[in-house]
Amino acid sequence: MSSAWLDTILIVGSLLSATLAFIWVAYRVGSSGSAVKKGVEDFGAAAEVDVEHIFNDEFREELRNRGRLHFEKIIGENAMFLQQDLRLTTSQINEYMKQEITKTLQEAFVKYEESITDAKQLALESIQKTQVAVEQQRELMGQQLSNEISAEKKRSLERFENNMADIVNHYVLAAIGNQISLDDQLDYILAELERNKPAIIEDINAGN
């Protein structure tokens, strides 16, 4: 599409150049005729006699043909030069546009890549911080859980140890409480009294 547009520009430019050259040649031819007429008025009269012999119609036609050929040659050369310049300019413009676009795109890509890298770095740092925080929280929770379990275990053991005597006593009482005769316990009770005899005597004597 851009090639068709360039061809159109070339054709229009060629036509304009040819028109301008034709106007210029006509103007020069017209102005030189009037100058000869003013400068050589004296010779004008003399030349008028022979002018018809020198510049007859054939000679004028020959001049016109030469002028036309020269004009066409100049127009063709200028058109060719213009076409070359246009092609060169177009090529340079294309190259320049290509370089600029490539440069811009590269810069954009570099910036985009930097942005991506920064975002990636930020995301990685954020993830690392989150991982560290999660790890710390996990360790803290693990430590707390371990402490709670140890404390609960200790409390359970203490409760069990404190109530162990009552538990065993309740079990013994429920299991064989009715089968323990006091007569069978007499020796045990007398032995216990004997063991606590000093304390009982001391208290009895203190009460006297």
Binding site: G177, Q185, Y188, L193, I200, D203, G207
Partner: peptide, 12 residues
Amino acid sequence: LAAGCMVRTNNK
């Protein structure tokens, strides 16, 4: 008590 006894004196 289940078995045994509990002895109580004036102060003990």
